[in-house]
Structures are given as C-alpha cells and as structure tokens.
Amino acid sequence: MNRSIKILITSTFSTITVLAIVFTTLKTIAYRKALNQFENYFLKEAERRKDKLLWTNRPDSVTLTLLKDRAYYSAQFEASKSDSICLIVNIPDSTVALYLKGVMVHSAKLEHFKISPLFKAINPAISNYAKSLPFKGMGQISTIRKMPLMVKIAPRDTSEYTPDVVPDTTDLEPVNFIIELKPNVQLYFYESNSSQSSDGFSHFKFDLKERIRTLKQDFKRISKFNYPVYKPYIRIRINKRDAKIIYRALPNKGQVILMLE
C-alpha cells in the first residue's frame, strides 16, 4: 500500500484514540464533579432546612432499615404537602407509583432498570438524606404531548355545525420520555412493549437524539475550556400504558422520590 496512506491511517487512528482517551478522561473528571455537586446540593439543602444528617459508621441491619424507612416516609410526607402529583421510583420493589396528597393513585411494575454508579458512590449520610426529600423536576422531554389539545373553531351558525366524531383512541404513538431533576439527575422512561417495529425505531431515534444533545453540550463546554457534564441517570423500561399515564399525570416540574436501595 502507498506509504503516505499508511501514515495517514496510522496518524488518523492514533489521533482518534488520543481524542477518545482525552474525552473519556474529561468525562471521568466530570463524574467526580457531578458527585461533588450532588453532595453539595443536599448539604446546602440540609443547611437551608436546618436538618442534620443521620448516619452511623457501623450501621446494623435494624438501624439501617429504620434509617431507610424514616427517609422514605419523610419524603412521602414532604411530597404530600404539595397539591400536585408525585412520582415514586422504588427500585428495591421494582415499582413506580403516582401519589396525590399521600394517596397512591397508580402503580406499575418496572420491567428493566439501569442506574448510574454515582448513586452508589454518594456518601451514605448524604445519600440517606437525599432519600428523605423529593427531587424537584426541572423539565421533561417526550415523544408524546403532555396535553393533546385539538383546536376547534366554533361554527358561524347551525348550518356549519358538525357533531363531534368518535375520538381516535388507538395507542399508536411511541411513549419515551425524560424527566430532568435537580441536581442534574436524568430519569429516562422507555416503553417496553415495542410491538411494532416503528416503535423500536422511534425508541432508537429518541435515544440517539438525546445522546447527540448531550454530546453537543459537552463539545460546547470543551470548546470553552470547561469540563463536560456527567448527568447521573436512571433508565427505566415500563409498559407503554403505564408510561403514558405517568407522563400525562406528572406536572412538568413535578416532584419525584427516588428509592434506589
């Protein structure tokens, strides 16, 4: 083969390997920063609320259960103070549930989940405190509309009036969405029963779009000599109907309780 082509191939792939290593290193640093940011957020929250962190260096199973229960009920009670619907993601029970004023209105089984290792790396005292508060929503991204509004222009007179037709209730639209929580936590919901190939493609498209969005943000930050952002994530697969119910019921800036262990 031509020598210059050999050099080109070698240099291109060496550069790419170096760039990949640099990017991974930057992302690892971003992970450390995200971990500190997460912990600082809850430390500040504890300071603001004048709460103390409860933990013991040598927790026995009874104390551990009591600490977890205390955090769980405290979060639930805190969320019930709000008028809006709250989502509880309970990983040990593999369930998600919607609560309204402390009353469970809907629950669903998780079919698959994946959690960022960051949640396991958090200082246990802070982690336990974080569980005792509902996470605040920052926004949502979805493949379906929150309010499927249909605009109807009133007829001029009775001759223009046509009675309503039966609404289309076929569940064809794929349901995938992301709930963004403070501090920078991403809660992904994917429909599990992609019975149609178009749903599978839509899932791939939605996921790819989100990955590109994150990558764009990372490159933007790197171009300004900042570290990229690591967002702790929870990826969940649930039944399409349940996913739709949760997305439609949860307000845009709704509260989410995360029970991760």
Partner: peptide
C-alpha cells in the same frame, strides 16, 4: 466506560463528620 472506571469508588471526603449525627 466512565461507569466502569468509577464503579465502587465511594466518596467520603465531602462531609464534615460534625455534620453527621449518630441516631
């Protein structure tokens, strides 16, 4: 890759022990 690299690394530095109460 980052998730594999950072797995099982506990963060213990950021909390002042005086902020924690043993229940």
């Amino acid at each position: 890759l980052v998730d594999v690299l950072v797995r099982n690394k506990l963060n213990i530095s950021s909390v002042d022990s005086t902020e924690i109460i043993t229940p």
